[in-house]
Design a protein around this nucleic acid. Structure first.
Lengths: 218, 218
DNA sequence: AACAAAACAGGAGAAACTCCCGAGATGCTG
DNA sequence: CAGCATCTCGGGAGTTTCTCCTGTTTTGTT
């Protein structure tokens, strides 16, 4: 990182659907961290539109947002602005999500339940092109890649994972089709593929697997 | 209960698929409790066949057994021998199962994680025709019947509950049909009814409800 | 005995899923 | 950059699975 303290601050854009969270983060980052929050957005769509206006160095994005959701937003943003540096800030203390986010191109994955310093670390690292992961999550990923407890979730493509998640949350095929703006046919086909890839025979097993790997709560 | 201590022991039959558990229980009951274990069985089917041979005063039966399972075994046993006194001995610290067992005619519902004395209590009470429930479970049932947290599970008949449980565990309709020795048609129909009674629209919600009420783990 | 509830299952049509295929996009990799 | 693999997306056609309705038989209750 560029040596001492008198540098110009890192320009950050916050994306989170909860206004209070955004305010809190802004306060936190600006007071503690040599960061300037140049703008924020409530949804992935908005982030996508405002990115070119704010021109942030780093985007800090919540993962669970209404609408397209963080993962989808991440991928679209990167598709349009390949040089964007995005740090995912998630409530999911969970390897499956992290893997997905990172392999979709995120520069960091930070758990909301971690320390404030972690987020700053991630932002600073992202700024210089490196990747930073919450220690607790790094631990989990490392562990499960060492153990044979191999997460079948990693075999899923981004889109597949998305469909998997939505299915597990109880959305119907039609709802998902609408949300992702594709045909029911496509979603139905994804569903079939998922069952194959994960070795599932019933929708019920899908849910249980999702719960087991922490993709959904409860 | 018949006054003092010099009575002939209570004749008990143990039904549990784990041999070690049976041995342990036998030891426990015979040493501490004025009980004579006159026989045991590993499955519901076996219990059904051996009942008339052993003629126990009380049957102590595990609830989660392979094959037909404890609930089914209980109901068949009682169908054939209406005077049988059965105490259910379960790993499920859980009101839904208890309610089902009791309303199927069990004389007691004891949690495996409870005290040894509870089981003896239940056996002695069953012997004289009374019903005994683990205090912790009694608490739960009492609480939820006082609170409006009304367990929709109680609206299910025994058979419905069974099908519900198996579905939630991820069994397919066909598997269930075979296991319960009924047609797929019947199971499919139960499934539809369940969704209606419980207000479920997707298999996913079924699993979640099952987890919420402790019918399945995780 | 009469009645209600539960268990069981068939038929017919609707909905959902599977399997197969192919087109267009993107991304590596030699 | 050409070639090959992967991903995304969806149509067609057939199969399976649900749903809704109906009816019989058993069981339990008053």
């Amino acid at each position: 990182m560029s040596s001492a303290g008198m540098n110009s601050p890192i320009r950050v854009m916050l994306v989170d659907d909860h206004a209070v969270v955004r305010s809190g983060l802004r306060r936190l980052l600006e007071q503690d961290g040599g960061v300037l929050v140049v703008g924020d957005a409530e949804t992935g769509e908005q982030a996508y539109q405002l990115y070119s206006e704010f021109r942030p160095d780093v985007v800090v994005m919540d993962m669970s947002m209404p609408g397209m959701g963080g993962l989808e937003a991440l991928r679209r943003l990167l598709a349009r602005y390949p040089l964007a540096r995005v740090v995912i800030f998630s409530m999911h203390e969970n390897a499956a999500f992290a893997t997905q986010a990172l392999s979709s191109g995120a520069k960091g994955y930070i758990s909301k339940s971690g320390l404030a310093g972690d987020l700053l670390n991630a932002i600073r690292e992202a700024m210089v092109g490196r990747t930073w992961i919450s220690p607790s999550i790094a631990q989990k990923i490392a562990l499960q890649s060492l153990m044979g407890d191999d997460d079948p979730m990693r075999k899923l493509s981004a889109r597949e994972f998305e469909v998997f998640r939505l299915l597990a949350e109880g959305r119907s095929v039609d709802e998902i089709a609408i949300q992702l703006k594709v045909s029911q046919k496509t979603v139905a086909n994804y569903q079939t593929q998922l069952k194959q890839k994960l070795g599932l025979s019933s929708p019920v097993e899908l849910v249980r697997m999702a719960i087991h790997f922490g993709v959904i709560e409860r």
